[in-house]
Simulated assay, not measured.
Amino acid sequence: MSSIPEHCPGVESESAGKESACQGCPNQSICASGAAKGPDPGIALVQQRLSSVKYKILVLSGKGGVGKSTFTSLLARGLASDINRNVGILDIDICGPSIPRIMGVLNEQVHQSGSGWSPVVHQSGSGWSPVYVEENLAVMSIGFLLGSPDDAVIWRGPKKNGMIRQFLSEVDWGNLDYLVIDTPPGTSDEHLSATQYLLGGSQSGSGTVGAVVVTTPQEVALLDVRKELDFCKKVNLPVIGIVENMSGFICPKCKVQSEIFPPSKIGGGAEGMAKEYGVPFLGRLPLDPRLGKSCDSGEHFLESLPESPAAKSLTQILDGLISSVENKMETD
């Protein structure tokens, strides 16, 4: 698998750092000097660390504001509702980490484990112990490393990529059944780094790594999400399925459904896009103001309102996702 930009000559090329496409790249001088030639040693470190993680799921969307972090939290909590599963959430949205708040662990701190030195936090320790929400549900986010939730992370691409590499190679997850990875919008640095390390440079992809793509029904969102599906195709990342979030509003009192973000009659919303690209459509999650409130307060929505339309919809999505992951990804 290649996770470099389309016109990049590649770090192993003799013209690395010397092509016109290299102009403006922050790694141009490193590539030109030859220091970047050869395989990234971080790939082996990540593969070794995550060898005890059975399934890795990236939650993606080319569009911001479609509810990736909300869906990530619901997916992880749903998976962890089976006490026999060990689940982790990795938040690689470096500039906008919202998982700590959504999971109710905003003011927690991570601790170093083992021995060594971390170039990011400048403390002794070869790894981090994640924050545990439940005995079988752990969380890691840069939000735990900030002095305040209001602190801005103002980093260029290489430093963000280094942080992602540390998260993937230095967090002591233990044995996990599922690692759910929340990503920022787009198809750029964070996504390229994550797929490169998770897929381990494989040209054919990996049966234990896949993506769930989240969108809202309207065409303006689908336009960006199509780019995400194209990204997955180009980097050989299998798509487990598409979820349509904010798919109608069901009034908690009268139960009448309204379409807040109506899908295009021509495109058919997320389900139509799934057919267009030949990927599974996992289902729809309705808007529910109580879900937004539970995310703000860090509450367990699925436990608080198990009979809500959103909770029932998630159960159906979860069943389809687990079936796809455990029955299909293993055979890929």
Score class of each variant (00 low, 15 high):
Met1Asn: 09
Glu6Cys: 00
Pro9Gln: 10
Pro9Met: 07
Val11Trp: 13
Ser13Tyr: 04
Ser13Gly: 05
Gln23Met: 13
Gln28Lys: 14
Gly34Tyr: 06
Ala36Tyr: 00
Ala36Arg: 11
Asp40Thr: 03
Arg49Gly: 03
Ser51Gly: 15
Ser52Glu: 10
Lys56Pro: 02
Val59Thr: 12
Ser61Cys: 02
Leu79Cys: 08
Ala80Cys: 01
Ala80Gly: 07
Ser81Val: 04
Asp82Ile: 02
Ile92Tyr: 06
Asp93Tyr: 10
Ser98Asn: 10
Ile99Gly: 06
Arg101Cys: 12
Gly104Asp: 06
Val105Ile: 08
Val105Ser: 06
His111Glu: 13
His111Gly: 08
Ser126Gln: 13
Ser126Tyr: 00
Trp128Glu: 01
Val131Gly: 03
Phe144Asn: 04
Phe144Gly: 01
Phe144Lys: 02
Gly147Cys: 08
Ile154Tyr: 01
Gly157Glu: 11
Arg165Phe: 08
Gln166Ser: 05
Asn175Ile: 12
Asp182His: 12
Pro184Tyr: 04
Pro185Asp: 00
Gln196Gly: 07
Leu198Trp: 00
Leu199Asp: 11
Leu199Gln: 15
Ser202Arg: 11
Ser206Thr: 12
Val209Ile: 09
Val212Gly: 00
Thr215His: 03
Thr216Glu: 11
Ala221Pro: 11
Leu223Gln: 14
Asp224Leu: 07
Arg226Asn: 13
Lys227Glu: 14
Leu229Asp: 11
Cys232Thr: 08
Pro238Lys: 05
Gly241His: 02
Val243Ala: 06
Met246Trp: 05
Met246Gln: 06
Phe249Glu: 09
Ile250Cys: 05
Gln257Asp: 14
Pro262Ile: 02
Ser264Cys: 02
Gly267Arg: 14
Gly269Met: 00
Gly272Met: 02
Lys275Leu: 13
Lys275Asp: 12
Arg284Val: 09
Arg284Cys: 12
Ser294His: 12
His300Asp: 14
Leu302Gln: 06
Ser308Gly: 02
Ala311Val: 00
Lys312Thr: 11
Ser313Glu: 11
Ser313Leu: 09
Asp319Phe: 07
Gly320Val: 00
Asp332Met: 15
